[in-house]
């Protein structure tokens, strides 16, 4: 409640929901979406602060990926609100690219990099810069761009692969490239879908470090199956079940929750 400023039009509404210190960055409330009669998301409400690291867990079909699809504009919900940032922008009225430009970056579950292009081109494309066609046409990379790409490449362990086609990379390397592209966008909110899949233990540790570091300044939402990975993140956990929030709190807290045990952990 202390975080509210006068300029916020919906301050009284949001005040009740902002239970955590730090400004609410993303507020999803009362969202439902139906695919062919199947309710993938059912009256879902989640709010993410900035900075915050949040893990979302849940069994298959709980709506984790659909949640990300809604936030990034890929799927339009049937009802509900998705508000963003200090100005409470309505994300539902924005296109995917506008949402991305507003500061929401996403790493897909299956790595989708541009396989016909080099690692460098992939990173350069993701790098934060004006996105309009004419900006891009007249874009001339300065030394800072090259430096930033090298820095990112070093971070994700692809410094030696910068000029290879990304289609030639191994699955794990593609995962890293995708994470690198996410970092390159420098978003305020990072949506990370199963980052640890296909990674060695050492790589997982590195990923954890990376996400934790990112969460010092940004909001990071991680969807993950791997409980060990989630534990290492040491963050607040939201458990989704059948399209709505089942429990929320520390990992220890939610793992003690009987309902969570029933639907997810107990199996």
């Amino acid at each position: 409640m202390t975080a509210l400023t006068e300029s916020e039009p919906r301050s009284h509404e949001r005040g009740e929901r902002a239970r955590r210190p730090g400004a609410t960055l993303l507020e999803v409330s009362g969202v439902s979406v139906t695919f062919d009669g199947f309710r993938a998301i059912n009256n879902l409400s989640i709010s993410i602060g900035e900075p915050e690291l949040r893990a979302i867990i849940g069994p298959n079909g709980a709506g984790k990926t659909t949640f990300m699809d809604i936030v990034t504009g890929k799927t339009r919900p049937d009802e509900g609100r998705v508000l963003w940032g200090e100005k409470s922008l309505n994300l539902l009225k924005m296109s995917e690219s506008e949402i991305a430009r507003a500061g929401i970056g996403r790493k897909f579950q299956k790595p989708t990099v541009f396989e016909a292009q080099t690692v460098r081109a992939n990173l350069a494309m993701a790098l934060k810069a004006p996105r309009s066609p004419f900006d891009v046409l007249f874009f001339r990379p300065g030394p800072d761009v090259a430096a930033r790409i090298s820095e990112l490449a070093a971070e994700i362990g692809l410094a030696g692969e910068l000029d290879r086609l990304s289609g030639e990379l191994s699955h794990g390397q593609k995962q890293w490239l995708e994470i690198g592209m996410l970092l390159a966008q420098d978003p305020r909110l990072l949506l990370v879908d199963e980052p640890a899949a296909g990674m060695t233990p050492a790589e997982r540790e590195h990923t954890t470090d990376l996400l934790k570091r990112a969460a010092e300044k940004h909001a990071v939402v991680v969807v993950e199956h791997d409980m060990e990975f989630v534990r290492r993140l040491e963050c607040r956990v939201t458990v989704l079940h059948e399209g709505s929030v089942l429990a929320e709190g520390s990992l220890d807290h939610v793992t003690r929750d009987q309902r969570v045990i029933d639907v997810y952990l107990g199996r």
Binding site: T72, K74, E96, S97, A100, R101, T112, F114, M125, S132
Partner: peptide
């Protein structure tokens, strides 16, 4: 769609 998610119109 991937390009779109990178923020390009």
């Amino acid at each position: 769609s991937r390009v779109r998610f990178l923020g390009y119109p």
